[in-house]
Design a protein around this nucleic acid. Structure first.
Length: 663
DNA sequence: GCAAGGTC
């Protein structure tokens, strides 16, 4: 019997073809590579995820002319997205009697399969179809799935379709409403969505907390004994601190002294979230994901979209380490292999879709771009780190007293580097204090009061935001970084850590007042519940979608106009331009400064022309921004590709104008 | 030009 197998992605098609058949031929049509077994007369075709896309019909495409109430009830159509694949499917459909859907075993996977099936059935009404369900592409799992073929789960696919429709209708209607109200059309439009808007609200509310934060002064008392010791209380007024200070004598006596060992566990294997968190030390999550994709396609790393933080037993961890023995990482590989015992770390999440992200081939530094190498190196080093031993710190805790006033001092020293030997991405901050004996009397060299301030909560770093989105179930591992990028390109957030702009404040405030539901993660939670009901057959897709449309129609009906957004039309944006990269704060006005280009390349203030701060940059060579910051100016250190020279552009300018040649 | 979700 002639047979077709459909998978969700190219890589899966290749692997499944090779597991099921032993006479696989690669065929090519246009840019599409697919597989054929002559002996079994079977084709295996990999899709590229969804091959069709939901959209509104053309008659609704004019934002100004379309009545939003009509748009709410408009029926979305499916638009062909992957035309080459669709053409190929139509051609093969005529040749085969049966198709097996072997897409990923999840909600979207079921719909992706159904999309392909509908294309096939459009050409060949009589085609038979079934479904292979597996949760890992291993020989065992695949053979098991193909000997127990099941039915396509239409309800599950419909639940995914409901999600698509609801997201489109709510997103499009509210996006247009907000954009029309503010008069921001064309490339300046403002967007709203089930995932992006709650995410933005989090950033806006954090920004507001920071704005409203009133720092409070407090005072702490320290004594210098050759090392520092701190009095455990904080004082709100200087007078009481001074009073305590005056009671301190000339000596302090050791009352307690303890030496402890503290284990700092090796890191867990990389899933997408963990990977993006760590990579965001080096570059934006979106860029990191793009590069990981690329490394994956070129065979250097495993599939970068995974939730799994536990290596499967079938993965030859030691073999992979060995492959690095004669590489750039030979020292690290030798270290890992030289340990008495090698035991991989494991995270909490164990899934079987894909293994944690790990290297799959040894790369040559010369074959990769600088950014690709940085990501590859991170993944290789992380992989080694998960197989290394724990790091061990020695902690010394001293409790002291002088005239009845208590002091405490804590020292920490890294005694065993362990995984830190191969994974040097975080700083080691050691504090040295001597070994003491109870009863020791130490001379107090200095006593002092330090004025401190309470700090506002921090802005979200890329890593913190991704982590929070994950916790709130906003977006998926594959989309979170794209959602953040969207918020940046809409002008809603900027900088690193992320800061909400006035645009974001205005939009979130209006939405909170008029359609609070779209600003809350609960909308996703509620939707998920309804989707489950569709999948279980308790509700129909049209019932759920209709209900959702009704709610939206009610909201739109009582929303009135969004007058407040009118002011946004002329809101001058202080956002850096598309190709400008922010590197820190302006020493003159406090706004952001960025690498800019006019006739020449330079660093200038994003508040130009209100602020005219600028310093020159070298004109030759690719400049890149390191993760380090200049201590004096708080500006990121820059480097020129191919040169070891690292510099703060402001320091460099000061040196140049002071007559000192940099280089 | 709209959303979010797959994948390249």
């Amino acid at each position: 019997m002639s047979w077709l197998i459909i998978t969700e992605k190219q890589k899966a098609a290749e692997r499944i073809a090779n597991i099921l058949f032993n006479d696989i031929k690669r065929l090519k049509k246009g840019n599409i590579v697919f597989f054929y077994s002559p002996s079994s007369n079977a084709y295996v075709i990999g899709l590229k995820g969804h091959i069709v896309e939901l959209d509104f019909p053309k008659e609704y495409s004019n934002w100004i002319k379309t009545d939003l109430n009509e748009l709410i009830n408009a029926k979305p159509i499916r638009v062909e997205k992957e035309k080459e694949i669709i053409t190929l499917l139509k051609e093969i459909a005529k040749k085969v009697e049966k198709v097996t859907i072997a897409t990923d075993y999840d909600r979207e996977g079921e719909l992706i399969g159904l999309e392909a099936l509908e294309v096939l059935r459009g050409v060949n009404r009589n085609i038979k179809f079934d479904r292979a369900r597996f949760s890992a592409i291993t020989r065992e799992e695949i053979l098991k799935a193909f000997s127990n073929l099941e039915k396509v789960d239409f309800n599950l696919a419909f639940s995914a379709l409901a999600r698509h429709e609801i997201d489109l209708v709510w997103g499009a209607v509210l996006t247009r409403l907000v954009s029309l109200s503010s008069g921001r059309l064309g490339k300046d439009f403002l967007s709203v969505g089930r995932v992006q808007t709650p995410t933005l609200r989090l950033i806006v509310e954090r920004e507001r907390e920071i704005e409203n934060f009133k720092p409070e002064k407090y005072y702490e008392i320290f004594i210098d004994l050759g090392f520092l010791a701190r009095h455990p209380s904080r004082y709100k007024d200087l007078e009481s601190a001074k009073k305590v200070l005056s009671q301190i004598g000339d000596f302090a006596t050791v009352k307690e002294f303890e030496v402890k060992r503290k284990i700092e566990s090796k890191p867990i294997p990389f899933n997408t979230t963990e990977f993006l968190r760590e990579a965001s030390r080096i570059m934006s999550p979106h860029r990191a994901m793009e590069i990981a994709e690329n490394l994956y396609i070129n065979g250097y790393i495993s599939y970068p979209r995974t939730d799994n933080t536990v290596y499967p037993e079938t993965l030859d961890l030691i073999g992979i380490v060995r492959s690095f023995l004669n590489s750039y990482f030979s020292k690290e590989a030798k270290y890992v292999l030289g340990q008495k015992k090698i035991e991989p770390s494991r995270g909490k999440k164990k899934t079987t879709d894909h293994p944690p992200i790990h290297p799959t081939a040894v790369a040559d530094k010369g074959n990769l771009t600088r950014e690709e190498w940085a990501i590859y190196e991170l993944i290789v080093r992380r992989f080694f780190a998960t197989l290394a031993s724990d790091a061990i710190w020695e902690i010394r805790v001293a409790e002291l007293e002088s005239n009845g006033i208590k002091f405490i001092s804590v020292g920490r020293k890294l005694v065993e580097l362990g995984w830190r030997k191969v994974y040097p991405y975080s700083n080691v901050e050691e504090v040295e204090i001597p070994v003491l004996k109870i009863g020791d009397k130490l001379r107090i060299r200095e006593k002092k009061i330090e004025e401190k301030k309470t700090k506002p909560p921090p802005r979200f770093t890329p890593s913190a935001l991704i982590k929070l989105m994950e916790r709130l179930n906003l977006g998926t591992k594959s989309t979170r970084h794209e959602i953040i990028k969207k918020l940046i390109s809409r002008g809603y957030i900027k900088g690193n850590p992320y800061r909400a702009t006035p645009l974001a404040f205005a939009v979130i405030d209006v939405l909170k007042e008029k359609v609070e539901t779209i600003t809350l993660p609960e909308m996703t939670a509620k939707l998920e519940k309804e989707l489950d009901e569709i999948a279980e057959g308790k509700k129909t897709k049209s019932e759920v979608v209709l209900g959702s449309r009704k709610i939206l129609a009610e909201i739109i009906g009582r929303m009135g106009n969004l007058e407040k957004l009118k002011a946004l039309k002329t809101l001058k944006s202080l956002e850096p331009g598309k190709n400008e990269k922010v590197i820190g704060k302006c020493p003159v006005c406090g706004k952001e400064i960025a690498i800019k280009r006019a006739r020449k390349r330079f660093v200038g203030c994003t508040n130009y022309p209100n602020c005219r701060f600028s310093v020159p940059l070298p004109q030759k060579g690719t400049i890149y921004i390191t993760s380090r910051t200049c201590e004096k100016h708080g500006v990121r250190i820059l480097k020129i590709r191919g040169s070891k020279w690292a510099f703060c552009p402001i320091c460099n300018y000061e040196n140049l104008s002071g007559g000192i040649q940099a280089q």
